[in-house]
Structures are given as C-alpha cells and as structure tokens.
C-alpha cells in the first residue's frame, strides 16, 4: 500500500484524517451542493436575491413535483433509459467479441484494425455530424431512438474494444493454451474461458458506457427533435431556455438528470475500480 496506511490503532489520527478528507470533498462538491440547495429553494426567495443563504422555506416537494408535472422530464427520462440500456448491452457484446479476437487471434492486419478502432474513437465526434445525420435519414431512422442507439453503439465500441482487448490480453495465457490443447473451438473458448473472467471489466465498462451515453447532449440534438424520443440532456437544456428565471426548477431537473448515473455508479463502485484496475491499468 502506498501511501503508508495509518495504523489501525491510531484512532484519533484516523478520525482526523477522515474529517480532513471529508472537508476536501465538501469543497470539491461545493458547486454541486449549491445547485442542490437551489433545487429546494422557493421562487420568491430567488427573486428576492437569496441565492446562497440557507433557505428560509424548503420547497423540495413543490419544486420536484413541478419538474414532474409541469415539464416533460419524466418522458425524457424514460427515453434516455430506452436509448442507454440497449446501447450499453450492444457495446458490451460487440466489444467482448472484437476485444477477444483482436487480443487472442493475431492476424495480418489485426493491429491495423485495432488502430482504426482506437483512432476512430479518439476523433471528436462532432466532425461526423453531417454524414451521420444523412445516414440516419437514409435509413429512415432519423428522430427515432434507434438512430441514437446505433450511433452510440458504433462510437463506444471503439473505446470498449480497446478496453476489452487490453483486459483479455492480460488474462493468463495458459488458460488459452489449455483450452486449445483440449481442442476447444473459438466459440467454446469465448464462452467458457473469456466470459466468466471478464465480468469485472464488463461492470466497469457498463458504468463508463452508461455515463457517456446517458450524458450525451450533442447527438441528442443532432439526431432527434420530437419530445417522444428526446433524451433527458436535450430536455434539460430545453428546460433552461423555457424556465430561464425559475432556477429552482432548473436545478431540481438538473439533479434529477444526474441521479441515474450517480446511483448506478454507487451501486457498482467496487466492481468499477476492480475492473478498471485489471482492464485499463494492467493492459
């Protein structure tokens, strides 16, 4: 362990250390706390200029209720789920396949293909705006969730392939030699050797992909227009335009949008660091 662990018996030292870190966390999250505070503030108070003081009256319920009742955020929220979940599943499947092949079946040109995946993923996505939009129009998918799902799967597969390839490459080679010695087909190897071992990597990848797709704003505005398919980020920005002076409502909606990735992250945090350790770091 580095830094050297504070000894278990130095209780006071440990408590002080924890307190110090907690203070840093508060400073670190101060801007976010301010937004949370605003989300429970009443409109009158904001109009009166009380932006930072402690709220005299808590309007938590009213504000969040307003978000659900007076805006279409709930629908945008469901749209986001409809877009994000299939995208994450698609990315996990495709990248396990590509990562497996690229790490364990070297062939002439495999490095080039790998380089294309990595390189393509590093491109600023904005430069593909016009061609991608035209493609979706030609496929008749413009302004449907499928347009976003297909694009996100395609784009995230680049990064995910890099991640999975590194992870699978770091698995002990003996396992694969043993599988080959037993005459296992590539499919059997995938099923019985790779899949059971990559779970932590998949967990980490799932969180990252979920976050990227859920938080996407650019493609949401390029590929959709109707409320029936618009995801929550585009909805939030619309809300900012429509409720310009109702900052408490905008804040409440902002917190609402941030919730799923945060919850997902907290739930899977343990797997996340473990998966990342093995996937990104050891590769």
């Amino acid at each position: 362990m580095y830094p050297r662990p504070i000894p278990e018996d130095a209780r006071i030292q440990r408590a002080l250390y924890l307190g110090g870190v907690a203070l840093v966390v508060i400073l670190w999250l101060l801007p976010l706390l301010a937004v949370m505070l605003t989300s429970i503030r009443s409109n009158e108070e904001l109009m009166a200029g009380n932006y930072w003081g402690w709220p005299q009256k808590f309007s938590l319920i009213e504000n969040y209720k307003a978000v659900f009742e007076q805006t279409a955020m709930l629908r945008f929220f469901l749209n986001s789920l409809l877009i994000t979940i299939p995208s994450v599943i698609g990315v996990l499947i495709l990248s396990t396949l590509t990562g497996f092949v690229l790490s364990r079946y070297p062939f002439r040109g495999s490095n080039l293909i790998f380089a294309l995946f990595v390189g393509g993923n590093f491109l600023p996505a904005q430069i593909m705006m016009i061609p991608v939009r035209d493609l979706m129009v030609r496929l008749g998918l413009y302004d449907t969730v499928y347009a976003l799902i297909i694009f996100h799967i395609a784009f995230q597969t680049g990064f995910a392939t890099l991640f999975m390839r590194n992870f699978i490459a770091a698995l002990p080679g003996e396992l694969f030699q043993a599988a080959r010695a037993e005459g296992a087909s590539p499919f059997q190897t995938l099923r019985h050797v790779v899949v059971p071992l990559v779970r932590p990597a998949l967990a980490a990848l799932a969180i990252l992909t979920f976050t990227f797709v859920w938080n996407d704003y650019f493609w949401a505005i390029v590929l959709t227009q109707s409320d029936a398919v618009k995801p929550v980020t585009a909805g939030l920005n619309n809300l900012r335009g429509e409720w310009t002076s109702a900052w408490n409502i905008v804040s409440a909606a902002t917190i609402f949008v941030a919730l799923p990735p945060v919850v997902m992250f907290f739930m899977m945090q343990k797997h996340f660091v473990a998966g990342l350790t093995m996937g990104a770091v050891k590769g």
Binding site: V137, D143, Q225, D227, K230, G241, E242
Partner: peptide, 19 residues
C-alpha cells in the same frame, strides 16, 4: 413539441429537410 427558442433556430435547418 416545444423547443428552446435559440436551439430551434438551428434545429429548423435540419428538420425542414428531414423529419
């Protein structure tokens, strides 16, 4: 479908052509 006033100025270019 209501759009943010400023965002709509750019969106209309796309949607008049497609969708």
């Amino acid at each position: 479908n209501n759009m943010d006033h400023e965002a709509h100025k750019t969106a209309i270019r796309s949607y008049l052509v497609v969708g």
